[in-house]
């Protein structure tokens, strides 16, 4: 059954409105402590004030830069390493165990180390974001390559395809839907990596801003930044989905 567009958009919007309304009522009636739990109205007002401040946009730029650079580096490396791992058995035997082992350690624990290595500038955050991005892309690319249809490989062999032809005309497109799923996950994780990196130590960025606002007990503004981050995450995800729809036209549900 396919749901109508109105239904698919209207329902979550409705849920959101009801949620905000209840929150506002709880705030107005004093059930929620106004100091630690500002009302939606206060958050909105705080956000209106925030957007007039230059440092807010500077912080946004920095965090976005860290996120996107980390994403591009991490995803690109993930694709290359994933393609090598998926294609060359020796490479897989030599390196894949480390990928799997590393995959299961909490990578955010590396943030303090990256801080000592790369300092308070954006580099440590870019590296953090890249490292987090890398793994889902590698793992999905390898899985995508492993999932290429055996019959299709036989067909390519019977046609006498060279290694390069098989790679570019079968393996790559065949694995791309799966790899792209990893890339989508990676983009969301990149934002997380950048913010975690900023929490651990940075001079600028939205993560830094959240910490500072919290210290100053500007809780409403802190909330506003968090919600702004959620929106950034949504927009990035929407963009990457658009790209996916354009690139991978054949993957049906």
């Amino acid at each position: 059954m396919t749901q109508s567009l109105w239904y698919r958009i209207g329902l979550p919007v409705g849920v959101f409105v009801i949620f905000v309304a209840i929150w506002q009522i709880l705030s107005v009636t004093g059930t929620l402590n106004p100091v630690t739990f500002p009302s939606p109205l206060e958050i909105t007002i705080a956000f209106g004030e925030l957007v007039t401040r230059g440092y807010f946009w500077d912080a946004t730029r920095i965090t976005l830069l860290e996120t996107l650079l980390g994403f591009i580096i991490g995803a690109a490396l993930g694709l290359v390493i994933g393609a090598l791992t998926g294609t060359f058995r020796t490479f897989r035997t030599a390196f894949y165990p480390f990928v799997v082992a590393f995959q299961n350690t909490p990578r955010v624990a590396l943030a303090p180390i990256f801080l000592t290595w790369f300092g308070f500038g954006i580099t440590s955050k870019v590296v953090m974001a890249a490292v987090i991005c890398f793994f889902p892309v590698v793992i999905n690319t390898v899985a995508g390559i492993a999932g290429v249809d055996e019959n299709a490989k036989t067909l390519f062999r019977s046609l006498g395809a060279s290694k390069a032809q098989t790679f570019f005309r079968l393996t790559l497109p065949g694995a791309s839907a799966m790899a792209f799923a990893g890339i989508k996950t990676a983009l969301t994780l990149a934002l997380l990596g950048a913010i975690v990196g900023e929490f651990v130590g940075a001079s600028e960025g939205l993560g830094v801003l959240i910490k500072e606002l919290n210290f100053q007990l500007e809780v409403a503004m802190g909330f506003a930044v968090v919600i702004f981050l959620a929106v950034i995450g949504l927009v990035l995800y929407g963009l990457i989905e658009l790209l996916e729809k354009r690139l991978i036209t054949w993957a049906r549900d």
Binding site: N151, S158, P173, T249
Partner: peptide, 11 residues
């Protein structure tokens, strides 16, 4: 050469 499955490239 033709197999049981059509193995067409979906892309």
């Amino acid at each position: 050469f033709m197999l049981q499955k059509s193995v067409l490239m979906p892309w």
